[in-house]
Each structure stands twice: as structure tokens, then as C-alpha cells.
Simulated scan of single mutants.
Amino acid sequence: MEVTQAPSRTELVKRATDLVPLLRKHAGWSEENRRLHDEVVDAMAEAGFFKMRVPTRYGGYESDTRTQAEVTAELARGDGSVGWTMSVWTIPGWMVGMFPDEVQDEVHATPDVRVCGTLSPSAMATPKEGGLVVNGQWGFISGAQHSHWQEIIAMAPTPDGAGLWPVMALVPMSDLEIVDDWYTAGMRGSGSVTTVARDVFVPQERALPLPAVLQNQYASVLNADLPMYRTTLLGVAAASSVGTVVGLARAAREVFFERLPGRKITYTEYDSQREAPITHLRVAEAVMKIDQAEFHAHRVTGLVDDKGLSGESLTLEERARSRADVGAVCQLGKEAVDIFNMASGGSSIYNSVPIQRIARDVQVVNMHALMLPETNYELYGRVLCGLEPNSPYI
């Protein structure tokens, strides 16, 4: 495939900004239908976003995580579900690069290929000549209905047969069943349905032991020296997850101030909410929280990108801090959204007012197991106190 000049971070972010009106136009449809609108997915492909975390030999851009996060933030400013699904697609899409090069050739034979995925080992795999047979299911698979492949995790016998270990594998979506069960309080447009495998055969070359992957033992030869693959899976996952919350917080700020002129504070003598001191205090607090969230987002993406360029490994403390940075982004972003939401008045509960959807979306993101602030802070605190981490996902 011909290698083209990759667009700059500035250009990719501008493309995302240009899509914001389209995303807002279809946000209500996506929420009602519990999946992204086809026009939105097509526009994302045309903008080149599915190429960001793809090697240049496949026509990709090899964008760094800072670029991915800033693009995702702009998309989430238009619709949180779009930002979230984009971030999810970039993580398993990047994970394709861990597999043998011939497997990557197969996956990237599809233009603008989209790969959904999970890190939950909620299936079983049994050995069969030439590979594994997988049975089980995976929940919360964002973007499944618009994906071509899924990265799955299943428990399989260890090579010595003495126990089980998780394996990571790639499966075409045509081999899986989709259960339409995504009826949720928020992030409805992400279409994070359940997928099911029934006696699905996975060739051996499309399966890797997850413990090896978590220790940076990848099977690709051609990607070994690429900066974006000289880092850890969890580090990349952390850095790739922050954009959505930043974008939602920015969206809350934007839609609040759009409605502010002319708004009264009902049952008070304030004819203008803009004149009330409580408004001044609360909006300043919210905006400062967004600034703080952006700091943590920049720190975690910068760390992963710098390590990829230098080839240095993340220390245990840096890996734990990356999880804590994600937790801080989530906590601060949600607190900012909550302030703007509560200050938006009773009229903001109508579906036509975006702040109610933004508040529900940021709440759902905060409840994600790898992003929950308290869990991530505990992990970081354990490491700071000299204890072993109580999770392999670090």
C-alpha cells in the first residue's frame, strides 16, 4: 500500500472540530437507536480517524496518543458516544499491531478497518489442531455493530496443561452473534452490546497469551521499532481513554454559556442568572476543574508518547500513576459537568437540551472498571506505599 504523508495533529483536530455540527445533529438519533448513525461513521472514516493508530505501511498515520486524545475530545464535544466509541476503536485497533505481521495483513486488507474489543476474559477456549475453539460472551462491546473484527479474551489451558491463562485473539465479526441489549442510562449511542461466540475456531496465529502481551512481548516483527509500540498495553489504554471526558466537560461548559444570556433564577429576585454571585463562583470552579482534567490528560498521554520515542520502559510507579491520571480526569470532568448541569435549571431536563445527556454520559464513563477514580487511586496509593499492585491491569 502506498504510504502517504500523515496529517498533523492540528489538522486532525480541525477535522474533528469540523464534524461537531454533524455529530450534534445526529446525537438524538444515536441515543434513541442505541448506535452511531451511519453518516457519522462514514464521516469519521472520510476524516481519516480510523487510520490514526495504524502503521504507515497500511496507509495509517501512526499518530501519537496525544493526537488521539485531542481528536477524541473534539468528537466528544459533539457527542460523548462518538468520542467514546472512537477511543474504544483505537485501542483494539492498536492492539492488532501486537499480532504476527501476516495477521495484521489480513485485518488491514479492509480499508478503514474497525476493531472493537475487551479486556474481560469471559469466555473459554479449548485447544484444537491448528488453533482454539472459543465459547462464551463479552459485554460492553462498544461499536460492535459498525466493526469488522473483535479482539476477545478467553481462558485457555496453559502450554503445560497445568492450569488456565487468558489469551487474546482476533475474530471476524461475522463469526460472532450480537445481542441487542444496550438499554442504559447513558452512552446509549455507543452501541456497547454483548457479543457471543459459539464454537468459533481461532487459528493459532490469531491468539496470543495475555500475560505476555501485558509484559510487552508482542509477536510483530515489523512493529518492534515503531515508537507507538514501544510501550505497554495498559499505558496506551489509559492514555487513549481520557479524551472523551475532557470533551464532555468542554461540551457542558459550551452549552451552559449558550443558554446563560436572558436566563432568570426562578423564585428569586435575579432577573439574570449571569448577574448572580453564585453563578460566578460555580462557573469559575467548574472551568478550573476542566483545566485540571486537561493537565492530567496531557500528562498521561505525554508520558506514553515520550516513552515510546525513547524506548524506555514505564516504571511501576509511572504505570500506576497513569491509572490515577485517568481517574483524576474522570473525577474532575464529572465534577465540572455536575456543576454546569445543576446550574442549568429545571428546563434543562428536557431531551432537547444537551446538558442532560452530557451529564448521563460522563456518569457512565466514570463507572467503567478501568476508569473508576477510587479504584485507580487505591492502586496508585498501594504502589506509593511500597505494596504490590492488587491488579494485573497496570
Rank of each mutant, 00 (worst) to 15 (best):
S344L: 00
G93K: 08
S344A: 02
H146L: 05
K264H: 10
K289C: 04
G189L: 05
A185E: 15
M367C: 03
M155W: 13
A154C: 11
P389F: 07
R35H: 11
M44W: 02
T118E: 02
P389Y: 07
T232H: 10
D271Q: 14
V193Y: 14
V179S: 09
H280N: 08
V41N: 12
E269H: 04
L22F: 11
I290H: 03
K25C: 03
R382M: 13
D361I: 13
S240W: 05
V107N: 01
A185C: 05
A45M: 15
P373T: 01
G48H: 10
I358L: 00
I290A: 05
H368Q: 14
F140T: 15
E318I: 15
I178R: 03
R253M: 10
R35I: 13
I358A: 00
L22G: 03
A169M: 15
L372H: 02
W94M: 12
E106L: 02
G381S: 06
V54F: 08
R282S: 10
T194I: 09
R114C: 00
E294H: 06
T301W: 05
G143S: 04
I152D: 02
A238F: 12
A249T: 13
R319M: 15
T244V: 05
S313N: 14
G83C: 12
P203S: 04
L12I: 15
Y350S: 15
I339N: 00
V242R: 06
S147K: 02
T4V: 11
L387H: 07
V167E: 07
V329L: 05
A185W: 04
L316S: 09
R357E: 02
E46I: 08
A47N: 11
I153D: 08
I141F: 02
I141D: 01
R319Y: 05
R382Q: 06
P157Q: 04
S87F: 07
E62D: 15
H108A: 04
F99E: 06
T184V: 14
P389T: 06
V134L: 02
G48R: 11
T315Q: 12
W89D: 01
T268K: 09
N341E: 03
G163N: 03
L19R: 10
A169R: 03
G131P: 05
T126L: 11
S344Q: 00
A293W: 01
F340N: 00
H148V: 00
E102T: 13
S120L: 12
E374C: 02
P389C: 08
V171W: 11
F201Q: 15
R57S: 06
T268A: 13
T110E: 06
P121C: 07
A219G: 13
